[in-house]
Design a protein around this nucleic acid. Structure first.
Length: 557
RNA sequence: UCCGAGGUCGUUCAAUGGUAGGACACUGGAUUUUGAUUCCAGGUAUCUAGGUUCGAAUCCUAGCCUCGGAGCCA
């Protein structure tokens, strides 16, 4: 099925209908409204892939708007990080970069209008009292004793709140709606609170700040948003979104909610993510095991894979827990087509080719990417002493084991057929320390002129030519597919990071720049770390393993 | 308890009164100088109970289950 034949999700169905009825005169304008108080994670990517993806598809416009109404939590550092991450995913919001704080003056005017219309009042109740007056689900609240102040008094009080006359928490401005409304959001919600705090953009211009519900709908309205797409947690707030816009008789976008995407084995709560860092379970926001976009970038995930992943997941209103394997599938699919192949040995076992001349070095031709011949080939050095992967040898192999064993012949990729003739062990521990082999000079390049076959092909490096590098093997951060509960620390995977140093890598990657991606043949996709790698001390991150049918067979016993 | 939303293969998204389909995952097979990739084949699903209808995942009624909501957070 092609994209054009593919059925539309419920959001696109609504938009199609809006276009058909000319609801917005052909305009499509969406927005992504992050609060600049943390790094973006995989779940945010779904939100802006939907908002921005739809705008792109319909030839509309998309805005980036920072929802910066709480000076206590927001920082410029996060603004920059968020912009970097969205750009990394390939979206360009052009000149449409906005800040809710840019609208503070207009918002204040709207608040005064509400008061003048008898729809808002200044309340002197404490936060605790407001809570207890609010009632509970199923039980109506009670009106504040300050609810019926005169318009003039309310106007005067609000002006004095703004001028800094009162302490934090002394008063708030509330919408006057219905204290017995079945939806708690409608029980006279707070729209302004006093905060004597410097704001990352407006500095000390203000000491009162508008609340989300008031700010968000009006910001959407000011920007001419057509479809305000957000997650289901705002469903209860939609009546209030509509209420403000209707009361103020301003342009009215429509809010549409969809289910956020939850990826198995990850958590996305900002608070919990912060705790992982504070307690030292991971190193930083960009620790490659984190579900943040900055971490995925560092880990080597291609941005196109994240986009195609969310595109394939689609959008609905159902609670979900998406299989991590689907994300990995998209990562591999992209990387398979684009990554040059390299040979690297992570868990080395030395082999000595007895019949190979002592000081001879052979330069062998290796294909860079069998999926893309335009990527060409390279030379890899072969010599008497090599490393192969320890897992590729078994002294006493089971039936299905195709790799090297005593007396068995295998192919060294792009090199020669070799046969294991002897196994050298540590006399004390019994551990295999070295293999003696012979090679067949007639098989240079990997094919036997007599047509004989081998069961397997191994990767290898020349011991004297290989680069020593650090390799970081990442696995999932949590053991539990749904670790997002209060005991999430207990679900941490103790084996989420294994550092190998040294690993041995073929010399062709000696000058690989930070961020360079490649496939270590038969092992997985790796990239040069952007934080810790140095030209003379390379550090590779494992992005994702290759599919491994053999490992799967073994795990089943 | 009240308000709101949602229940379709293992997972996710379709099917909007007319053969329950795709992708991932899984299983089997073919090809393979990566046990990769690629290709082929296969199995598994409509929350429950009634009703309307020639025909129901879809419409109606009643129930069950899950999630969200009582910030001066977003």
């Amino acid at each position: 099925m092609t994209d054009s034949e593919k059925s539309k999700d419920f959001i696109r169905t609504i938009i199609d209908e809006d276009i058909r009825t000319d609801k917005y005169q052909g305009r499509i304008v969406t927005r992504f409204p992050p609060e600049p108080n943390a790094y973006l994670h995989i779940g945010h990517a779904k939100a802006f892939c939907i908002n921005y993806g739809i705008a792109e598809e319909y030839g509309g416009q998309y805005n980036l708007r920072f929802d910066d109404t709480n000076p206590l939590k927001e920082e410029t550092e996060f603004v920059e990080a968020i912009k970097d991450d969205i750009r990394w995913l390939g979206f360009d919001w052009k000149e449409h970069e906005y800040y809710a704080s840019d609208y503070f003056e207009q918002l204040y005017d709207f608040a005064m209008t509400l008061i003048k219309n008898g729809r808002a009042y200044v309340d002197d109740l404490s936060a605790d009292d407001i809570r207890s007056y609010r009632g509970t689900p199923g039980e109506p609240g009670r009106n504040s004793p300050f609810r019926d102040r005169s318009i003039d008094e309310n106007l005067d009080l609000l002006a004095r709140m703004r001028s800094g006359e009162y302490e934090d928490g002394a008063r708030v401005l509330r919408a006057k709606i219905d204290m017995s409304h079945p939806n708690l959001v409608m029980r006279d919600p707070t729209i302004y609170r006093i905060r004597h705090a410097a704001h990352h953009r407006t500095d000390n211009d203000w000491c009162i700040y508008p609340m989300y519900d008031f700010t968000h709908c009006l910001s959407d309205s000011i920007e001419g948003i057509t479809h305000s797409l957000c997650s289901m947690e705002f469903e209860n707030n939609r009546v209030l979104y509509d209420w403000f816009l209707d009361e103020l008789k301003v342009y009215h976008p429509q809010q549409i909610e969809f289910a956020r995407g939850n990826v198995a084995y990850t958590i996305t709560s900002k608070r919990k993510l912060r705790k992982l860092i504070e307690e030292g379970h991971i190193s930083a926001w960009n620790d490659p095991r984190m579900p943040t976009l900055t971490a995925m970038k560092r880990r080597g995930y291609p941005p196109e894979a994240i986009r195609s992943f969310w595109k394939e997941v689609g959008v609905a209103k159902k609670h979900n827990l998406i299989d991590f394997a689907l994300l990995e599938f998209h990562i591999r699919e992209k990387l398979n087509r684009t990554s040059p192949r390299v040979m690297g040995v992570i868990n080395p076992l030395k082999i000595v080719i007895d019949n190979y001349p002592d000081d001879q070095v052979d330069e062998l031709e290796a294909v860079n990417n069998p999926e893309d011949e335009t990527m060409g080939s390279r030379k890899v050095p072969f010599s008497k002493e090599l490393y192969i992967e320890r897992d590729d040898f078994m002294e006493d192999p089971p039936k299905k084991f195709y790799r090297l064993a005593p007396g068995r012949e295998v192919r060294l990729r792009y090199a020669y057929f070799v046969t294991c003739t002897d196994v050298i062990k540590d006399p004390v521990t019994g551990e295999v320390t070295e293999l003696r082999c012979t090679y067949d000079p007639e098989t240079r390049g990997g094919d036997a002129p007599d047509g004989r076959k081998v069961k397997s092909t191994l990767h290898w490096v020349s011991a004297n030519h290989a680069l020593k590098a650090e390799v970081r093997l990442f696995d999932r951060l949590f053991n539990d597919p749904n670790p997002d509960d209060e005991a999430f620390i207990d679900h941490l995977n103790p084996d989420s990071l294994k550092v190998v140093n040294p690993a041995y890598i073929e010399p062709s990657v000696a000058n690989a720049p930070a961020g360079f991606r490649c496939q270590f043949e038969r092992l997985g996709y790796f990239c040069v770390d952007t934080e810790d790698s140095k030209p003379d001390a390379l550090v590779f991150n494992r992005t994702v393993t290759l599919r491994d049918t053999w490992a799967k067979m073994q795990n089943k016993g």
